[in-house]
Amino acid sequence: MRTLLFSLVSTLAVAAALPALAAEKLTVYTYESFTAEWGPGPQVEKAFEAECGCDVEFVSVADGVALLNRVKLEGASTKADVVLGLDTNLTAEAKATGLFSPSGIDLASIKVPGGWTDDTFVPFDYGYFAVVYDTEKLKNPPKSLKELVDGDPSEKIAIQDPRTSTPGLGLLLWVKAVYGDKAPEAWAKLKNRVLTVTPGWSEAYGLFTKGEAPMVLSYTTSPAYHMIAESTDKYQAAAFEEGHYLQVEVAGITSTGAKNPLAKKFMEFMTGPGFQDAIPETNWMFPAGKTDKPLNPAFDKLVKPAKTLQISAEDVAANRKAWVDEWLGVMSK
């Protein structure tokens, strides 16, 4: 017992002493799966530290939403120089806080569907939401969102709650982008196909891979993981005629970071191969900047959306609450 206590206390002491040793330091707030050992974090940290001769510290919270809350709470006194991992549904709200400074970097190498012009936030990857299905269980996957909505209610889909999860909000916006004012009617039909609404992506995907539901809301890139890491074609994404809803993940420099020259350097590094090469097979998203290596051929086999759907960050910020309430009204009947 005493040795356990001692080791904990000494760990704490070391943790507290460490920052004092580093001369030049960059603090990046991000989400957990970014800094996980199999995430892009470790590679990116090593590559950038070699380039800048500085110390990079990642601080991670649960997800993009928690990230924004964290920065809001800390306000102007935040330790973060860079916040990495917000998505386009959050950028309007993030900008409104006044805590972010213009990036001031050249966006020429940034390629995301629909182009990019924002001067504050810089994309680092993107992906499309998609219905992923089990080819062994579902012979006729839906070919459109309409077919998903009107299809056989005995063929179920596991989705996420838009109140607690990013993909859940993604599906809500996808339906809104396609159905507009008719979204409640669409949800009323889709409701019968919904097996359950989970709090996060993990639970829904877990149900899907356990065989509880033949479909799950995920990303077009999900099958790439199964093809590359598990060498199986069993799970595929369904291409929808109406197009797929886009998620762009971005990073921004805070007002604290505006005083640290390393922040801008990191943002420039982020758009180049040292960062981008790590993205596809660790974050399982498409790189938004220049890569050195070609993508794994499995990425070529993925669904290429006929059309990119997106609702502007401002519209999402203004309507999110009303739309979630509308969804709740239909789904809890």
């Binding site: 649960a62 939403v65 928690a66 809350n69 709650d161 109140r163 607690t164 409701k191 919904v194 097996l195 359950t196 609404v197 989970t198 709090p199 639970e203 149900l207 709740l328 789904m331 809890s332 009947k333």
Partner: peptide
């Protein structure tokens, strides 16, 4: 949430979590 089948089955805890997280 996971076994409840949809937002019909929601507890106050979910609402608390939502009000702090989202």
């Amino acid at each position: 949430l996971t076994l409840g089948g949809g937002p019909r089955a929601t507890t106050l805890e979910v609402a608390i979590y939502q009000s702090l997280r989202f």
